[in-house]
């Protein structure tokens, strides 16, 4: 590099560098990121104001797409509720994971095998998991394990085509999300429990706090930062459910497993309503940002209440 470019000086531990050096370090990444993450979102906001089928003219319709979306679309509001519902259902993983983490660290001397087996599904592709569980939920005559099991145990009346049943499909999906991610939460909580110093428990046992009492007054409060992480992960898990739903049910049967992002995807890429799909997509971005802000507020409240 030519010496004239290098005007570096170290002041109080920060480097003072020339404009060009700064540009070389910052611009490639920043411009790339702005061009392919931010610009598309802006473009999407613009598309949400037009009517367009991909070919031909874009007709400017103002906020009409949103009006239709909010007032006339029979799939939209249920899909919003379902997104929230999946988030809430995913939150159930957290208390279970905490209990498992505490039990494993108390009773298991060599925990690696257990933790790794819990964790294994986390690293698998959503396609493998989705197709695997589709086979499990198949009717018994097509090799479905769950129904074959029920028949074996004499519960033939309970068998159903799980993913084809408007009442059950969403539960069947939630169970798969649960199955895939519970190991992640167990791992996170387990690491949290391991990081609590054993001195604290020893001190507590002198004061007579052991077992469940120690869990209530020592483990849980000290775990709270780690619990927060799990809660955030579980809550945003409802967005990750997108691929799984596309692979497993495609939003069906009768739209009973449709979430915001699948609705957006099918409106855009199956019905070619590009403008309308973009309105849903814009709503989705706003929804995610609002959810994040609300979660942070809730945590602040909880921390204030605790202190």
């Amino acid at each position: 590099m030519a010496p004239s470019v290098w005007e570096g000086k170290l002041v109080n531990g920060v480097l003072k560098v020339g404009k060009w050096t700064l540009a070389v370090f910052v611009l490639p990444c920043l411009l790339f990121y702005l061009a392919f993450v931010f610009a598309p979102i802006m473009v999407s906001v613009y598309y949400s104001l037009v009517e367009w089928a991909g070919m031909g003219d874009q007709v400017f319709v103002g906020l009409n797409n949103y009006k239709v979306l909010f007032t006339q679309d029979p799939i939209f509001w249920p899909s919003v509720l379902r997104t929230l519902y999946i988030s809430l259902a995913s939150l159930l993983q957290v208390p279970i994971a905490i209990v498992v983490a505490i039990l494993v660290s108390r009773y298991v001397r060599r925990p690696n095998f257990l933790i790794s087996s819990y964790f294994l599904p986390v690293i698998l592709s959503v396609v493998v998991i989705g197709q695997l569980w589709k086979s499990i939920y198949n009717p018994a005559s097509l090799g479905g394990m769950l129904n074959q099991m029920l028949i074996k145990f004499g519960l033939e009346s309970w068998t159903k085509t799980w993913l084809g049943d408007t009442d059950w499909a969403i539960f069947a999906l939630c169970f798969v999300i649960f199955w895939q991610y519970i190991g992640y939460h167990v791992l996170i909580q387990f690491t949290g429990v391991q990081n609590i110093s054993s001195d604290i428990y020893e001190a507590a046992s002198i004061d007579g706090a052991e077992g469940f009492k120690a869990d209530r007054y020592i483990t849980l409060p000290l775990l709270s930062p780690v619990i927060k992480i799990s809660v955030v992960l579980a809550a945003i898990g409802s967005l990750k459910a997108f691929d799984l739903i596309v692979v497993m049910t495609g939003g069906g049967p009768a739209n009973t497993t449709e979430v915001i992002s699948t609705h957006m995807y099918y409106m855009t890429f199956n019905s070619f309503k590009y403008g309308y799909g973009s309105a849903i997509s814009t709503f989705l971005v706003a929804f995610c940002l609002v959810m994040t802000v609300l979660l942070n507020l809730a945590f602040k409240r909880a921390e204030e209440a605790a202190s």
């Binding site: 990121y33 855009t268 590009y274 973009s278």
Partner: peptide, 21 residues
């Protein structure tokens, strides 16, 4: 901060604009 906001943006919402680009 600009990068941090990106963590919250769902990748699905850029599919159509990216396809056009």
């Amino acid at each position: 901060l600009v990068f941090l906001v990106g963590i919250m943006i769902p990748i699905q919402s850029t599919l159509l604009p990216l396809m056009v680009i």
